[in-house]
Amino acid sequence: MKEFRVCHVDELTDPGSLEVTLPCEDMEPTIFLVKMEGRIYAYVNSCPHTGAPLNWLPDQFLDYSHELIQCTLHGARFRPGDGYCVWGPCQGQSLKSLPVSVRQRQIYVSCA
Rank of each mutant, 00 (worst) to 15 (best):
M1L: 12
M1P: 09
K2F: 11
E3T: 12
E3C: 09
F4M: 13
F4R: 05
R5H: 11
V6G: 02
V6T: 05
V6I: 12
H8P: 02
H8G: 07
V9H: 00
D10I: 00
D10Y: 01
E11S: 09
L12V: 05
D14M: 05
D14N: 15
D14I: 03
G16D: 04
G16W: 00
L18Y: 00
L18N: 00
L18Q: 02
E19R: 03
E19F: 01
T21N: 15
L22H: 03
P23R: 07
P23F: 06
P23D: 15
P23Q: 14
C24F: 05
E25I: 14
E25D: 15
E25Q: 15
M27H: 14
M27T: 13
E28A: 07
P29A: 11
T30G: 02
F32E: 05
L33N: 00
L33G: 00
V34Q: 02
V34E: 05
V34M: 05
K35E: 11
M36C: 09
M36I: 13
E37R: 07
Y41N: 01
Y41P: 01
A42S: 14
A42P: 04
A42G: 09
Y43R: 02
Y43Q: 07
Y43V: 04
Y43W: 08
V44S: 02
N45S: 10
N45E: 12
S46Q: 15
P48E: 14
P53N: 13
L54M: 12
L54P: 00
N55C: 14
N55S: 15
N55A: 12
W56K: 14
L57S: 15
P58M: 06
Q60N: 14
Q60V: 11
F61I: 07
F61N: 00
F61E: 02
H66P: 01
E67K: 04
I69F: 01
C71Q: 03
C71A: 10
H74P: 13
H74T: 11
G75C: 08
G75D: 11
R77A: 08
F78R: 01
P80H: 01
D82P: 02
Y84P: 02
Y84T: 06
W87N: 08
W87G: 02
Q91R: 13
Q91V: 12
G92R: 06
G92I: 07
Q93M: 12
Q93I: 06
Q93H: 13
Q93F: 08
S94G: 06
S94D: 06
K96E: 11
K96V: 08
K96Q: 13
K96P: 00
K96C: 04
P99D: 12
V100C: 02
S101L: 05
S101E: 12
S101A: 09
V102T: 10
R103A: 10
Q104L: 06
R105L: 08
Q106A: 11
I107A: 01
Y108F: 15
Y108D: 13
S110A: 15
C111H: 05
A112G: 13
A112E: 15
A112I: 08
